[in-house]
């Protein structure tokens, strides 16, 4: 009887001990996905704003045909990177201020699909070439005027020939901020000049010059300037130039 008791106790202990073995610990995610969203017309990376600008949409189809999307936000210069992903097969596309890569018609049929199906592993680079709604170029550098204001010259043109994405230009603005993270999500409205309505819509194709508001800018600091414009489409994303710094002595 005692022998039986001990053998049962021993087998329970062995069972308990062996169950502690950590066999099901999945390796931490270590795969890198990176890339750039570029303007097909100019070949340059497409400028955006952080947070509510370009983002990369990942649909991991290794497990499910109807996965919940996973998003990677892009940096404001149009590049993106995530170094903590799991390896897997993904359908990848991008969303932002450009002609959508995946378009659905009113009947729910997918009419355009430029997403890429990629085996994401180790370090994978996926680039996108897109047609921005608007293309904004600097015309010279921003100028510090004698009266302490800054005048910025630029030109807004259509970035796509597709008439479905040539809605009216609703806003044009020369965003001014005290650091280089500048855009519609982050600017100083005391100084930032804006155009809207017809003024904005008539600006397409012309060289415009806008001067900062509020008189002389406080001195002994730098201002970071960036021109943005948007059309009335979807979530009204802005297109941007890159950021220029103006030092006010």
């Amino acid at each position: 009887m005692k022998k039986l008791f001990y053998s049962i106790a021993l087998s329970v202990l062995v069972a308990a001990g062996s169950s502690c073995k950590k066999v099901d610990n999945y390796a931490a995610p270590n795969v890198t996905l990176k890339g750039t969203v570029t303007d097909a017309g100019t070949g340059k990376s497409l400028q955006t704003e952080q947070g509510s600008g370009t983002r990369i949409k990942l649909l991991e189809i290794s497990w499910s045909s109807n996965p919940t999307p996973f998003y990677v936000s892009s940096f404001q210069d149009g590049t993106y990177q995530n170094t903590k992903l799991f390896a897997g097969k993904n359908v990848i596309s991008a969303e932002g201020a450009f002609v959508p890569l995946v378009q659905v018609d009113d009947a729910g049929k997918t009419i355009v699909d430029k997403s890429q199906t990629v085996d994401v592993k180790d370090v994978t680079t996926v680039n996108f070439s897109v047609e921005p709604f608007l293309r904004i170029e600097w015309v010279g550098d921003p100028v510090l005027n004698a009266d302490g204001t800054i005048t910025t010259s630029f030109k807004v043109t259509r970035g796509t020939a597709d008439p479905n994405f040539q809605q009216n230009v609703s806003d044009v603005a020369v965003f001014v901020n005290s650091n280089n993270y500048v855009g519609n999500n982050n600017y100083d409205n005391r100084y930032t000049p804006k155009l809207s309505g017809n003024d904005a819509n008539n600006s397409v194709g012309k060289t415009l010059s806008l001067t900062t508001l509020g008189g002389a800018l406080p001195g002994k600091r730098s201002y970071f300037i960036r021109v943005g414009a948007r059309v009335s489409y979807g979530l009204n994303y802005y297109n941007y130039t890159d950021v220029k710094e103006v030092k006010v002595p």
Binding site: V104, D105, D106, A107, G108, K109, S232, Y233, G234
Partner: peptide, 12 residues
């Protein structure tokens, strides 16, 4: 409104 989201069966 200017935002549109259409599902696979054409429901907006």
């Amino acid at each position: 409104n200017q935002i549109s989201l259409v599902d696979g069966s054409g429901n907006r």
